Simulated scan of single mutants.
Amino acid sequence: MVDKYWETKPLENMSDREWEDLCDGCAKCCLHKFIEDEDVVEAVSTDHLKKGENIHYTNIACGLLNTKTCACSKYMERTKLVPDCVKLTKDNLKDIFFMPPSCSYRRLYEGRGLPSWHPLLNKGKKSAMHKNGMSVRGKTVYEQDVDLEQFEDYIALWPVQDLD
């Protein structure tokens, strides 16, 4: 029997291990994203969406991502090696607007529960997630292989899908 701690324990009360285990490992957070705003001429970093702005996901993956396992190859060093990489924490979860709707942290924060394909509900295995197309496996190109100035050519709709 699986301890479904996420159903009874608030996110802010979870241990570090419980928090880390909530990650479904889809790697959608490792995709380049951009905000569409007709008034902005050059890209700028932001921590929120303004009225009229839309977030777009691309199929361009961070160079540290192992696209077969959907795991960061330098997880413990990622925020040092990739300054734009955001470490999701209990404190900043409410401000992480760019997480896809299928993200387990976002789902729990919004009161929607874990999806049926989540590894915690599948004996710790990612196979159901991959089979249901909820990970980035087989769908990406590496950032070093594309011209990032042409990111519009790499817009992807699949990252925002949510099955249940």
Rank of each mutant, 00 (worst) to 15 (best):
126 K>Y: 09
44 V>C: 12
25 G>R: 01
121 L>A: 02
10 P>V: 03
162 D>L: 14
46 T>L: 03
105 Y>S: 12
60 I>D: 07
71 A>V: 02
29 C>Y: 05
60 I>L: 10
110 E>R: 13
149 E>K: 14
124 G>I: 02
98 F>K: 06
110 E>W: 12
156 A>Y: 06
3 D>E: 03
100 P>W: 08
97 F>P: 04
139 K>Q: 11
8 T>L: 13
82 V>N: 00
94 K>Q: 15
65 L>M: 06
125 K>A: 12
58 T>G: 02
46 T>H: 08
90 K>N: 00
3 D>Y: 05
48 H>E: 14
17 R>M: 09
119 P>R: 04
32 H>Y: 05
80 K>H: 13
30 C>S: 07
69 T>A: 14
89 T>N: 00
79 T>A: 12
32 H>I: 08
111 G>P: 05
79 T>Q: 14
5 Y>P: 01
35 I>S: 08
110 E>C: 13
5 Y>A: 01
48 H>R: 15
106 R>I: 09
4 K>M: 12
59 N>Q: 13
124 G>S: 00
125 K>D: 15
5 Y>E: 00
144 Q>C: 11
54 N>P: 06
29 C>D: 04
126 K>I: 06
8 T>V: 15
134 M>C: 10
21 D>L: 13
27 A>C: 02
100 P>M: 04
32 H>E: 07
21 D>G: 06
47 D>L: 12
33 K>D: 06
108 L>T: 06
138 G>E: 04
154 Y>S: 02
40 V>P: 01
160 V>R: 11
87 K>Q: 10
156 A>W: 04
47 D>P: 07
125 K>Y: 14
164 D>H: 10
68 K>T: 03
2 V>A: 10
126 K>V: 10
6 W>Y: 06
33 K>F: 07
79 T>C: 11
18 E>D: 05
37 D>L: 00
68 K>Y: 09
134 M>E: 08
85 C>D: 02
38 E>T: 09
9 K>R: 11
125 K>C: 12
150 Q>V: 14
21 D>F: 07
95 D>T: 07
155 I>L: 05
80 K>N: 07
86 V>R: 03
11 L>Y: 02
105 Y>H: 14
130 H>V: 12
48 H>S: 12
74 K>V: 15
74 K>F: 12
48 H>W: 13
82 V>K: 01
88 L>R: 02
11 L>T: 04
87 K>F: 05
52 G>A: 13
14 M>Q: 00
128 A>F: 10
142 Y>E: 07
